[in-house]
Design a binder for these strands. Structure first.
Length: 131
RNA sequence: GCAGUCGGCCGGUCUGUCGCUGAUGCCUUUCGGCAGAAGAGGAAAGUCCGGGCAACGCAGAGCAUCCUACUUCCUAACAGAAAGCCGCCCGCGAGGGCGGAGCAAUGCAGAAGAAAACAACCGCCUCCCCCCUGCGGGAGGCAAGGGUGAGAAGGUGGGGCAAGAGCCCACCAGCCGUGCAGCGAUGUACGGGCUGUGCAUCUUAGGAGUUGUAAGGUCAUGUAAACCGGCGCCAACGAGGGUUGCUCGCCCCACGUCGGAGGGUAGACCGCUGGAGUCUGGCGGCGACGCCAGACGUAGAUAAAUGACAGACGCCCCUGCCUCCGUGCAGGGUGACAGAACCCGGCUUACAGGCCGUCUGCUUCU
C-alpha cells in the first residue's frame, strides 16, 4: 500500500492558493539558505491541506530562457519527490502541517546529484527546526 | 572529385527504474479507488503585421490623426506570397542585394559655389571713349571653357557664328503624341518640340471603431442604497452628462410604483481546442494557389504537466594504432537554438550536425 506509492508527487501536494503564497512571502515564513537554494516555510492549519505543500520558484531575473528554468524546477521536484519522507514522517506523527517554497538563488545550472544533496539537507534542517 | 547556387526536408532511435497531466472505462451508496489512450517546436521565441472569436461602443455629417503606395495575381486578410516591370549595386557564373505613386504651391538641402532657374566671378566676342600707347574706362552680346556640388540649364560629335547657343544636323537619354506587342507596369517603331536633382509639408488613390481569452460567461454565499427595464405623472430650462480626438448634430435629465438583478473578496467550471485542419491521389494554373475524391482524429497545463536517472545503438567530431591510400580497430566527447498558454496565416530573429534534388565554375579520367 503506502510503501509502494511513496515516491509520488501529485497536484494536491503543490501549493497553489494565491492568498497562502502571499502570506508565506509577506513575512509569515521562516527562511533557510543552502546555496544554490533557499527554503521558505511556515505552519498552516486548514483541514483540506496535505501535511506538506510545496512550491518551486526560479526567478526570471536569473534565467531569461524558459528551458533552463524548467530544467531546474524539474531537478528540484525530482529531488523532493525522492526524499520527502524526511519531512512527512515526523510531521504525520506530530500532526503539524506546513507550506514550503524552494527558491533558486544562483545564476547557473547545477548537476542533478548536487541539487538532490542540497534539497536533502534543507529537508533535514526544516525537520529539526520543527521538532 | 572540389567549391558554390537555388529550392525542399530532418534535427536523434531504443530499453529499464521512478514519476507528471490526464480522454475514457471499471468498481463503489457517497467520499473515493483501480486501469489507462494520448502528451511541445521549426522556430512553441520576438510579439512586428493580418484575420477568426469575444466584450463594449455605434442616428448622421465634416475635419483631424494613423496606415498603405511600380504592375498583375493569390488569399479570410495582410505591411505577406507568386509571376513580372524599371533603376542602381555585388558576383567569372548559376544567382543575389537594395529601392519604386505625384511635384501644382511652399520650404529645406545651400556653411560649397558667381549663380540652385528672370544664372555673367574668371573668361570669350563686337562697338564706343580717353593722348586709341599701356589695356584704362563704358555700352552690349555669349552658357563653349574654368572652379563648387549628388545635381549647373539634356550628353557626345559635326556644321554654323563676331564669339556663342537645339540655332541646325546625326546618334543617345528624358518628355509628349500616334501605331504595334502586352490584362498591366512597360517595351518597341515613327513623329514632335527642346528638357535641372532629392527630400519634407503637401497632393492623389485606397483603407482604419476600442480593448484583448487575465476577453467574456456560469455556479455557490447573498443585504440596503446605487444600477437596468416597464408603467404613471411632472418638467422642458440651461448648466451638466453621454455620444471616437475635435466641431456640428443627436440623445438623456425630477418623482412615484412594479419587476429584474448587481458590486467586492477567494474558489470551481465553461471559454479550451474539429480548424481558413493534416496527409494521399487526381484535375486546372508558369507559379503563389484553387477545385474534387478518399483517409486520419493529432497537447490542453493554470505558481503552469509533457520529466529525472542509468544503459545500448546510430550520427558527427577529436586522439592513437594498422607501412601509405582506402578501410578497419580502440578510447573519449552526446551535443545547436530553444518549452505550447484562445486559435490560425505571415514576417523577423536564433540554430551543432545531416539528407535530397536543380543549376554554375574549376579540375581529373575515358
Amino acid at each position: 500500500m503506502a510503501e509502494t506509492r511513496k515516491y509520488t508527487l501529485s497536484k494536491t501536494e503543490r501549493l497553489n492558493r494565491r492568498t497562502l503564497i502571499e502570506r508565506l512571502f509577506g513575512g509569515g515564513g521562516k527562511s533557510l539558505p543552502a546555496f544554490p537554494l533557499r527554503a521558505v516555510y511556515m505552519q498552516v492549519e486548514k483541514e483540506e491541506f496535505p501535511s506538506v505543500s510545496i512550491l518551486i520558484s526560479v526567478p526570471k531575473k536569473r534565467f531569461k530562457r524558459a528551458v533552463k528554468r524548467n530544467r531546474i524546477k524539474r531537478q528540484i521536484r525530482e529531488a523532493y519527490r525522492k526524499n520527502k519522507d524526511i519531512l512527512q514522517v515526523p510531521l504525520k506523527e506530530s500532526g503539524k502541517k506546513i507550506a514550503v517554497a524552494f527558491i533558486w538563488i544562483d545564476n547557473e545550472l547545477h548537476e542533478s546529484v548536487k541539487v538532490e544533496a542540497k534539497v536533502k539537507k534543507l529537508l533535514q534542517l526544516i525537520a529539526e527546526r520543527l521538532s
